[in-house]
Design a protein around this nucleic acid. Structure first.
Ligand SMILES: Nc1ncnc2c1ncn2[C@H]1C[C@H](O)[C@@H](COP(=O)(O)OP(=O)(O)OP(=O)(O)O)O1
Ligand SMILES: Nc1ncnc2c1ncn2[C@H]1C[C@H](O)[C@@H](COP(=O)(O)OP(=O)(O)OP(=O)(O)O)O1
Ligand SMILES: [Mg+2]
Ligand SMILES: [Mg+2]
Lengths: 456, 456
DNA sequence: TCGCATAAA
DNA sequence: TACTTTTATGCGA
DNA sequence: ACCCACACC
DNA sequence: TACTGGTGTGGGT
């Protein structure tokens, strides 16, 4: 049912083969049921159901005329989007495998071969692939994970080690694109178009051969199209990176980069190669762990790749949106395109735009670092507290940590936001705009305490 | 079903009013299900079902003649038992209320009013009455108790404190019967017949009045039978303790004793007064907590008292026997009597004897201390261990503790018994007879290790 | 005598 | 993850 | 500007 | 008893 789609594990995440989903779901449900957390999940599921209800009734009264008109507009919009399609760049998304867990297995050899989870009894950040066989996942409470996998070993996170490993990975990536965009400790986008253009024939000769690259179907296409493997320059010596040969070369480059990352960190990294960020990101998940995937720079190939792609795989579509779309009988990208008129009428322009681009495989290929951060803060969850002074203490401590970080990073803020979570997992947010930008701890503290007292 | 009767809380234990049994059972079941413990419970339930199966098929083929003959023998046996019925003694069973918990609430005043459980996350020895409202019970794992009662406070046991309290209680009881039989730290049997016979009129005058005694129905009978309350001597000045007046006087004596126990320990003790141990024991549970119950020394009253008494209340009938009897449509003592022929044919002579005596309210009234102990030992449960040396260490340590106890108590033993529990809660037992009685630690250790190695 | 099941606090 | 510890009795092989 | 819901790692 | 912490986006008001 609806709440199940919230609490059960996502069926098309990496490594779901060989996991007994029914059994796992049942364990999760039975351990969650009756808890305040579960009550809250049901509340949220009901809320989603309500949203769906509204949408469906709006859909029910749509006139044929309105739908025809929307269809025309959507069609025109798609043609417009097609003019934006850019197949010229070679975008790579790198994503380390079970990152925190892999670092721990590397640093604590006695744990190798055993299932581990990073975190504590309350919450796991991630789990080793060994543990994932049992259904253990990121964002799963440790006590449920232990029920799924009694042999699971809980390992406390060592963030400094992950940061160090991250820096090592980034050093390798910088060799291929000094302007790579890191999006988290373990993943980054690169544009290797320029790097590939600069490759000399000598460089190319040093690349690993295509036969060792781990994405057979597309590789075979590339090989069959050009019977002379490894030859990827045209008659003028300038490479056309949109051809299958060009992408095959990209695959060799990425394979070399992944090999170097593994050599320097003993960590495995998976990668996706495509002509924009979204497709590259989907690709990096395709052959996890320790695999890569290369999508040709070809509209037909892209549409074929996406046709049966579950909506949930599109970055930006999470459990809720997936559920809403499912209720509209839309579970893959093909359906997204087929229902474009309905989507145009039911969703906001921004969402419609997002759905269409996603389904067509049209997205940004900008991998330059993003400008500045927009917020900074701390939060902590604790046992039920009712005494105002206790809450004040917690609040002040978080203010202190935040102000310290702001000072260290030389940041200023203009708004102070207080987040409150009750024992039944309801979240409240209260904010004030300060008269001026500041990083002054007393100012932030006064603002936060003011917000706190406003809520008694 | 069958496993439910094993894991769910006993519905007629003290303080089951106001407990939501369905909800509680559901929580227990859902938290147990899927665990190795639960698997074992199902195994045992199946075993009981098998026993029942055999019994029922034996019952099915019984000839009318066999039943008639059994009926005759049972009837004769009952008449024989009646000749043994002894109403002359005044037997008291004292049982402290929520003993460990009460000591903790006494010694840690900040815990008063709050639900507490004595033990840890793994197992509780007992729970305060406050906690019992939520379904929390003795022998319940702490983590299930916490699910039933999130406010529950777990308190580590302090056995020395309970022993000290027990000694204080016993000091009071010794005033009434120096030969009282203590059966555990918190309970004991007394025979106050002689004490009552020695009471002077002055002593009687100092006893608390009957109106404050907490067992109204029988007290009222006593009062109504004798309109002059407090007068319990016959014309000759010798008391007939089998009369209602005699028992009313006993109730006053017991009330005084309980008051003294409360004064010296700040603990409340409940008591049952009857003419044998079994009836007194059932009585002590009747008006818990801080209550007492007096059963007249009268065959009709006893049979009336027992008629609808659930079999499970009879000391010696536990979950399994209750279940077996239930399958034979026997749930109370009346049914036990009515089915006497069947019981004679299906059970062993000892069991039949026990059932008949119990249902008739005929039992031993010997409250003298029992002779010697028959065994002494230690056990400990630990996480899964597979290495032989680790198991040897555990075993040797238990031998050490046992030998030490034997020396302290100047005991000798002739048999060494090793108990093994596997991760799936199966229990094995291996024993050897020694050539001679001993308390020698090395001898015991060698014997134990030999048994251990026999099991690899 | 041994091993197991049942019962109790 | 987390279902005790100590003592006793009865039954069947 | 504020508050909430959703998403991702 | 144990369901995170840090950051960003979009929508509704
Ligand atoms: N929900 C979360 N809460 C806190 N930390 C998280 C969460 N999800 C992931 N992390 C941390 C731990 C991960 O190792 C790290 C990278 O996340 P992510 O790439 O999604 O998974 P992963 O690298 O552990 O496995 P994989 O990428 O192989 O699926 O970020
Ligand atoms: N299953 C058990 N395991 C270990 N210790 C126990 C167990 N049951 C009881 N105890 C201990 C703790 C108790 O306080 C003490 C006396 O037991 P008992 O008289 O049956 O319950 P109680 O005194 O706690 O409550 P009450 O008598 O009011 O029902 O023995
Ligand atoms: Mg990763
Ligand atoms: Mg008691």
């Amino acid at each position: 049912d609806a709440v199940l789609s919230r609490i059960s594990l996502c069926p098309h995440k990496a490594g779901m083969d060989s996991v007994n989903k029914n059994k796992t779901d049942e364990v999760i449900r039975s351990m969650s049921e009756g808890s305040r957390f579960y009550d809250n999940e049901r509340r949220k599921a009901a809320q989603t159901a309500q949203r769906v209800q509204v949408m469906k009734s709006r859909a029910a009264v749509l006139s044929t005329g309105a739908l025809q008109q929307a269809e025309a507009m959507a069609s025109a919009f798609e043609r417009q989007l097609e003019t934006e399609r850019d197949l010229s760049r070679v975008i790579v998304h790198c994503d380390a495998d079970a990152f925190y867990a892999a670092v721990e297995l590397r640093d604590q050899p006695h744990l190798r071969g055993k299932p581990i989870g990073i975190g504590g009894i309350g919450m796991l950040s991630t789990a080793s692939y060994e543990a994932r066989k049992f259904g253990v996942r990121s964002a799963m409470p440790g006590y449920i994970a232990l029920r799924l996998c009694p042999e699971l070993i809980l390992v406390k996170p060592r963030f400094h080690a992950y940061e160090a490993a991250s820096r090592q990975l980034q050093a390798v990536m910088a060799q291929y694109d000094p302007n790579f965009r890191s999006v988290s400790l373990d993943e980054a986008y690169l544009d290797i178009t320029d790097y590939m253009a600069r490759l000399t024939p000598g460089d190319v000769a040093q690349l690993p051969p295509l036969t060792t690259v781990a994405d057979p179907p597309l590789v075979q296409e590339a090989n069959s199209a050009d019977s002379k493997p490894g030859m990827a320059t045209d008659s003028a010596g300038a490479r056309n990176l949109t051809t299958l040969e060009g992408r095959a070369l990209a695959a060799r480059v990425v394979h070399q980069m992944r090999t170097r990352m593994h050599e320097t960190t003993q960590l495995t990294v998976s990668a996706g190669i495509a002509c924009n960020r979204m497709l590259a990101k989907i690709g990096s998940d395709q052959n996890k762990p320790d695999g890569q995937f290369c999508l040709p720079a070809d509209r037909a190939a892209i549409l074929a790749f996406l046709a049966n792609m579950p909506t949930r795989k599109i970055p930006g579509i999470g459990k809720v949106t997936e559920q809403i779309l499912r209720e509209l009988d839309i579970t893959n990208c093909q359906a997204l395109l087929q229902q474009r008129a309905l989507l145009k009428l039911l969703f906001t322009p921004i969402s419609f735009d997002f759905f269409m681009r996603s389904a067509l495989g049209i997205a940004s290929n900008n991998t330059r670092k993003r400008s500045e951060r927009k917020s900074i803060g701390h939060e902590t969850t604790f046992r039920e507290l009712n005494q105002v002074p206790d809450l004040e203490d917690k609040c002040l401590h978080l203010c202190h940590k935040t102000a310290l970080d702001m000072e260290r990073k030389a940041l200023l803020g203009r708004s102070v936001c207080l987040k409150l979570k009750t024992v039944d997992f309801k979240v409240k947010q209260r904010s004030v705009l300060l008269p001026a930008h500041t990083a002054d701890e007393p100012v932030i503290k006064r603002a936060a305490l003011g917000l706190l007292h406003r809520e008694l």
